[in-house]
Simulated assay, not measured.
Amino acid sequence: MTTFDILFFHFFQYYKNKKSKKANSIATFYITVLQCSLLLLLGVFFAKFFRQMHMDTMSASKAWTLFVLIVIFIYFKNWMQYGGRKRKVLNAKMIKNRKLTYNIWLLWFLPVVILGLTFVLFQAV
Score class of each variant (00 low, 15 high):
Met94Arg: 10
Tyr82Gln: 06
Arg87Lys: 13
Phe49Pro: 07
Met55Ser: 10
Leu66Thr: 09
Val89His: 05
Asn91Ser: 14
Ala60Gln: 11
Ile26Ala: 04
Val33Asn: 02
Met94Tyr: 15
Ala63Lys: 09
Ser25His: 07
Ile95Trp: 05
Ile26Asn: 08
Val68Gly: 04
Thr101Val: 10
Val71Met: 09
Asn103Lys: 12
Met80Pro: 00
Leu115Asp: 02
Phe76Asp: 00
Leu69Tyr: 09
Gly43Met: 07
Leu117Asp: 04
Asp56Leu: 06
Phe46Leu: 15
Leu106Gln: 10
Gly83Ser: 09
Tyr75Leu: 08
Pro111Trp: 01
Trp105Tyr: 14
Trp105Pro: 01
Gln52Ser: 14
Asp56Ser: 11
Phe29Trp: 02
Trp108Gln: 09
Tyr102Asp: 09
Ser25Ala: 09
Tyr82Asn: 07
Ser25Thr: 04
Leu40Tyr: 04
Lys18Gln: 07
Phe109Leu: 15
Lys96Ala: 15
Ser59Lys: 10
Asn78Phe: 01
Leu117Met: 12
Lys96Glu: 15
Thr32Ala: 07
Phe67Pro: 03
Lys18Met: 04
Phe50Leu: 15
Ile114Met: 05
Asn17Lys: 15
Lys18Cys: 00
Lys99His: 13
Trp108Val: 00
Thr101Met: 05
Ser25Cys: 00
Ile72Arg: 03
His54Phe: 10
Leu41Ala: 14
Ala92Met: 08
Trp79Cys: 00
Leu38Thr: 02
Leu117Ala: 12
Asn24Val: 01
Ser20Asp: 12
Asn91Ala: 14
Asn103Thr: 05
Val71Trp: 01
Val89Leu: 09
Lys96His: 12
Ile104Ala: 03
Leu38Asn: 09
Lys93Asp: 09
Trp79Gly: 00
Ile104Tyr: 05
Val113Gln: 05
Leu34Asn: 05
Leu42Lys: 10
Ile31Val: 12
Ile70Thr: 11
Ile114Gln: 07
Phe76Glu: 03
Lys88Gly: 02
Ile114Val: 13
Asn24Ser: 13
Trp105His: 12
Met58Gly: 07
Ser61Glu: 04
Lys93Arg: 12
Val89Lys: 11
Asp56Lys: 09
Tyr102Gln: 11
Lys21Leu: 10
Ile104Glu: 06
Met94Asn: 14
Ser37Met: 08
Phe46Pro: 05
Tyr102Val: 02
Ile31Arg: 01
Lys16Asn: 14
Phe50Pro: 06
Ile26Arg: 08
Ile104Asn: 05
Tyr15Ala: 05
Tyr75Ala: 07
Trp105Lys: 13
Phe73Cys: 06
Tyr75Glu: 00
Ser25Met: 03
Ile104Ser: 03
Leu110Gln: 07
Arg51Cys: 10
Ala27Val: 04
Val112Lys: 06
Ile95Gln: 15
Leu40His: 04
Arg51Ala: 15
Gln52Gly: 14
Met94His: 11
Asn97Ala: 14
Leu41Arg: 08
Met80Ser: 10
Lys99Gly: 06
Pro111His: 02
Lys22Asn: 11
Met55Ala: 14
Lys16Met: 09
Thr101Tyr: 05
Ala27Gln: 06
Leu110Met: 11
Val89Gln: 11
Val44Leu: 03
Thr28His: 01
Ser59Cys: 04
Lys19Ala: 11
Tyr15Leu: 05
Lys86Leu: 02
Ile31Lys: 01
Leu117Lys: 03
